[in-house]
Simulated scan of single mutants.
Amino acid sequence: MDVKIETSRLTLRPWGADDIEQLTLGLNDLKLARWLAFVPHPYLTSHARDWIKRCQEISNAGPRPTAYEFAVDLRPERLVIGGVSLNKIDWKAGTGGGGIWIADRYQGHGYGREAFEAKVRFAFCELGLTKLVNGYFDGNENSWAMQRKLGYRRVGEVTSRCMADGRQTIEHVTTLLRSDWEDREGQTCNRA
Protein backbone atom coordinates (compact mmCIF):
# COMPACT_ATOMS: atom_id res chain seq x y z
CA MET A 1 0.00 0.00 0.00
CA ASP A 2 1.91 3.03 -1.28
CA VAL A 3 0.92 6.23 0.51
CA LYS A 4 2.26 9.63 -0.51
CA ILE A 5 1.78 12.78 1.58
CA GLU A 6 2.41 16.26 0.16
CA THR A 7 3.19 19.36 2.23
CA SER A 8 4.14 22.83 1.04
CA ARG A 9 7.84 21.91 0.66
CA LEU A 10 8.04 18.15 1.14
CA THR A 11 6.81 14.82 -0.14
CA LEU A 12 6.57 11.91 2.27
CA ARG A 13 6.68 8.73 0.20
CA PRO A 14 7.66 5.07 0.45
CA TRP A 15 11.36 4.20 0.43
CA GLY A 16 12.73 2.73 -2.78
CA ALA A 17 15.95 1.20 -4.12
CA ASP A 18 16.94 4.57 -5.61
CA ASP A 19 17.17 5.98 -2.06
CA ILE A 20 20.00 3.73 -0.81
CA GLU A 21 22.78 6.26 -1.38
CA GLN A 22 20.95 9.24 0.19
CA LEU A 23 19.74 7.12 3.11
CA THR A 24 23.28 5.92 3.80
CA LEU A 25 24.70 9.45 3.58
CA GLY A 26 22.02 10.85 5.87
CA LEU A 27 22.30 8.25 8.63
CA ASN A 28 26.07 7.70 8.53
CA ASP A 29 26.51 10.72 10.81
CA LEU A 30 27.15 10.04 14.49
CA LYS A 31 25.87 13.51 15.47
CA LEU A 32 22.47 12.41 14.11
CA ALA A 33 22.56 8.68 14.87
CA ARG A 34 23.21 9.29 18.57
CA TRP A 35 19.62 10.54 18.91
CA LEU A 36 18.12 7.45 17.23
CA ALA A 37 17.62 4.21 19.15
CA PHE A 38 17.96 1.69 16.32
CA VAL A 39 20.51 3.19 13.91
CA PRO A 40 23.99 1.64 14.00
CA HIS A 41 27.19 3.55 13.37
CA PRO A 42 28.77 3.39 10.93
CA TYR A 43 25.63 3.16 8.81
CA LEU A 44 26.51 1.11 5.75
CA THR A 45 24.97 0.60 2.33
CA SER A 46 23.95 -2.88 3.47
CA HIS A 47 21.99 -1.35 6.37
CA ALA A 48 20.16 0.97 3.96
CA ARG A 49 19.42 -1.89 1.56
CA ASP A 50 18.04 -4.06 4.40
CA TRP A 51 15.96 -1.16 5.77
CA ILE A 52 14.37 -0.42 2.40
CA LYS A 53 13.60 -4.11 1.85
CA ARG A 54 11.96 -4.26 5.28
CA CYS A 55 9.92 -1.12 4.55
CA GLN A 56 8.70 -2.59 1.27
CA GLU A 57 7.65 -5.81 3.02
CA ILE A 58 5.74 -3.84 5.66
CA SER A 59 3.92 -1.72 3.08
CA ASN A 60 2.79 -4.89 1.26
CA ALA A 61 1.57 -6.59 4.43
CA GLY A 62 -2.11 -6.05 3.69
CA PRO A 63 -4.80 -3.42 3.96
CA ARG A 64 -3.97 -2.51 7.58
CA PRO A 65 -0.20 -2.39 7.99
CA THR A 66 1.34 -1.91 11.42
CA ALA A 67 3.79 0.69 10.09
CA TYR A 68 4.25 3.37 7.45
CA GLU A 69 7.86 4.33 6.77
CA PHE A 70 8.35 7.46 4.68
CA ALA A 71 11.31 8.99 2.93
CA VAL A 72 11.18 12.78 3.32
CA ASP A 73 11.84 14.39 -0.06
CA LEU A 74 12.63 18.06 -0.51
CA ARG A 75 10.66 19.28 -3.50
CA PRO A 76 11.09 19.90 -6.33
CA GLU A 77 14.58 18.39 -6.21
CA ARG A 78 13.32 14.95 -5.10
CA LEU A 79 16.21 14.89 -2.68
CA VAL A 80 15.87 12.63 0.39
CA ILE A 81 16.64 14.77 3.43
CA GLY A 82 15.28 12.45 6.11
CA GLY A 83 12.77 9.86 7.16
CA VAL A 84 9.62 9.75 9.26
CA SER A 85 7.92 6.70 10.74
CA LEU A 86 4.42 5.91 11.85
CA ASN A 87 4.89 2.51 13.41
CA LYS A 88 3.78 0.20 16.20
CA ILE A 89 0.22 0.76 15.02
CA ASP A 90 -2.32 -1.03 17.20
CA TRP A 91 -5.54 -0.78 15.24
CA LYS A 92 -7.67 -2.10 18.10
CA ALA A 93 -6.31 0.43 20.61
CA GLY A 94 -6.12 3.24 18.02
CA THR A 95 -2.48 3.99 18.82
CA GLY A 96 0.79 4.37 16.97
CA GLY A 97 4.29 5.75 17.40
CA GLY A 98 7.36 6.47 15.35
CA GLY A 99 10.11 8.99 14.99
CA ILE A 100 11.83 11.28 12.56
CA TRP A 101 15.31 12.19 11.39
CA ILE A 102 16.48 15.02 9.18
CA ALA A 103 20.02 15.03 7.76
CA ASP A 104 22.30 17.47 9.58
CA ARG A 105 22.70 19.95 6.72
CA TYR A 106 18.91 20.33 6.41
CA GLN A 107 18.18 20.90 10.09
CA GLY A 108 17.06 24.30 11.32
CA HIS A 109 14.72 25.03 8.39
CA GLY A 110 11.48 23.60 9.84
CA TYR A 111 11.50 20.52 7.61
CA GLY A 112 11.33 18.16 10.60
CA ARG A 113 8.30 19.84 12.07
CA GLU A 114 6.61 20.00 8.66
CA ALA A 115 7.14 16.28 8.06
CA PHE A 116 6.21 15.27 11.62
CA GLU A 117 3.06 17.39 11.52
CA ALA A 118 2.07 15.72 8.23
CA LYS A 119 2.55 12.33 9.87
CA VAL A 120 0.36 13.35 12.82
CA ARG A 121 -2.41 14.57 10.48
CA PHE A 122 -2.21 11.34 8.46
CA ALA A 123 -2.38 9.21 11.64
CA PHE A 124 -5.40 11.03 13.04
CA CYS A 125 -7.33 12.04 9.94
CA GLU A 126 -6.61 9.29 7.42
CA LEU A 127 -6.08 6.31 9.71
CA GLY A 128 -8.40 7.35 12.54
CA LEU A 129 -5.87 6.74 15.31
CA THR A 130 -6.62 8.41 18.63
CA LYS A 131 -3.23 8.51 20.37
CA LEU A 132 0.41 8.78 19.30
CA VAL A 133 3.25 7.70 21.57
CA ASN A 134 6.70 9.06 20.81
CA GLY A 135 9.75 10.09 22.73
CA TYR A 136 13.20 11.60 22.66
CA PHE A 137 16.56 10.88 24.26
CA ASP A 138 17.68 12.99 27.18
CA GLY A 139 19.50 16.04 25.84
CA ASN A 140 17.70 16.19 22.49
CA GLU A 141 15.92 19.44 23.27
CA ASN A 142 15.21 20.17 19.59
CA SER A 143 13.05 17.05 19.37
CA TRP A 144 11.19 17.96 22.55
CA ALA A 145 10.63 21.54 21.35
CA MET A 146 9.13 20.28 18.06
CA GLN A 147 6.88 17.76 19.79
CA ARG A 148 5.77 20.31 22.40
CA LYS A 149 4.78 22.79 19.65
CA LEU A 150 2.55 20.08 18.15
CA GLY A 151 0.83 19.49 21.50
CA TYR A 152 2.72 16.46 22.84
CA ARG A 153 3.04 15.98 26.60
CA ARG A 154 5.76 14.17 28.53
CA VAL A 155 4.25 11.21 30.34
CA GLY A 156 7.20 9.19 31.59
CA GLU A 157 10.78 8.06 31.30
CA VAL A 158 12.40 4.75 30.40
CA THR A 159 15.98 3.63 30.16
CA SER A 160 17.11 3.05 26.57
CA ARG A 161 20.31 2.16 24.78
CA CYS A 162 21.53 4.01 21.71
CA MET A 163 22.71 1.54 19.07
CA ALA A 164 25.04 4.06 17.40
CA ASP A 165 27.31 4.73 20.37
CA GLY A 166 26.19 2.11 22.90
CA ARG A 167 25.41 4.56 25.67
CA GLN A 168 22.54 4.00 28.06
CA THR A 169 20.31 7.02 28.39
CA ILE A 170 16.91 8.21 29.49
CA GLU A 171 14.17 8.27 26.88
CA HIS A 172 11.39 10.72 27.67
CA VAL A 173 8.06 9.23 26.59
CA THR A 174 5.60 11.66 25.01
CA THR A 175 1.99 11.34 23.87
CA LEU A 176 -0.43 13.28 21.74
CA LEU A 177 -4.18 12.62 21.90
CA ARG A 178 -6.23 13.31 18.80
CA SER A 179 -8.71 15.27 20.96
CA ASP A 180 -5.90 17.54 22.20
CA TRP A 181 -4.58 17.96 18.66
CA GLU A 182 -8.07 18.83 17.35
CA ASP A 183 -8.56 21.37 20.15
CA ARG A 184 -5.53 23.30 18.94
CA GLU A 185 -6.34 26.27 16.71
CA GLY A 186 -6.75 25.24 13.08
CA GLN A 187 -6.34 21.50 13.62
CA THR A 188 -9.28 19.58 12.21
CA CYS A 189 -9.71 16.45 10.17
CA ASN A 190 -12.62 17.79 8.11
CA ARG A 191 -14.47 14.50 8.51
CA ALA A 192 -17.80 14.12 6.78
Rank of each mutant, 00 (worst) to 15 (best):
N28W: 05
Y68E: 08
R13W: 12
D180M: 05
K53Q: 13
V72E: 04
D104H: 10
G156S: 10
G112S: 13
A118Q: 11
R191G: 10
D104I: 07
N87P: 02
T24E: 14
E171N: 00
T169I: 15
T66D: 03
P40I: 14
R49E: 05
V158P: 01
I5Y: 13
A115D: 00
R13T: 11
Q107K: 11
R34F: 03
F122W: 13
T7W: 06
A93W: 00
L86Y: 11
E182D: 12
L74Y: 10
K88V: 02
W35V: 00
P65Q: 00
A115Y: 10
W181S: 01
G83N: 09
D29T: 09
E57A: 11
P40L: 12
N134V: 05
K31N: 06
R161I: 15
L86W: 08
A123W: 00
P63Q: 11
L12W: 06
R191L: 15
G156I: 02
T7H: 09
L10I: 10
E182V: 12
A192V: 12
Q187A: 03
N134H: 12
F124D: 00
L74G: 10
Y68F: 15
T45V: 09
G16L: 07
P14G: 11
F122H: 15
Q147T: 02
L44G: 02
L44N: 02
N140V: 00
N140F: 00
H172W: 08
R54L: 08
L12T: 03
R13M: 03
L27C: 08
D50N: 09
S160T: 12
D29F: 11
R167Q: 14
R78C: 06
W51Y: 12
S143R: 01
P65K: 07
R154Q: 14
P76E: 13
Y136C: 07
E77W: 06
E182G: 07
V84C: 11
D29P: 02
A192P: 04
G110R: 07
C125H: 03
R105E: 12
L79F: 07
W91N: 04
A164K: 08
K131L: 10
K119M: 15
A118W: 07
T174G: 08
G112N: 03
W101S: 04
G98W: 02
T130Y: 01
A37T: 04
W91S: 10
V155W: 03
Q147V: 04
M1P: 15
A164S: 15
R34L: 05
T7C: 09
I52Y: 01
A93H: 08
G82C: 12
Q22G: 01
E182H: 12
G166C: 14
F137N: 01
I81V: 04
D183F: 08
G110P: 11
V80S: 11
W15L: 08
D165Q: 05
T66N: 00
L32A: 12
A164V: 07
E157A: 09
G108D: 14
A103W: 03
Y68K: 06
E21Y: 08
G151K: 04
V3K: 12
R154P: 14
D183W: 09
L86R: 02
N134A: 15
H41T: 13
A118E: 02
T175F: 01
A164L: 05
L23Q: 09
L27W: 01
G26P: 03
G128T: 01
L129K: 03
A93Y: 02
V39N: 05
G97I: 01
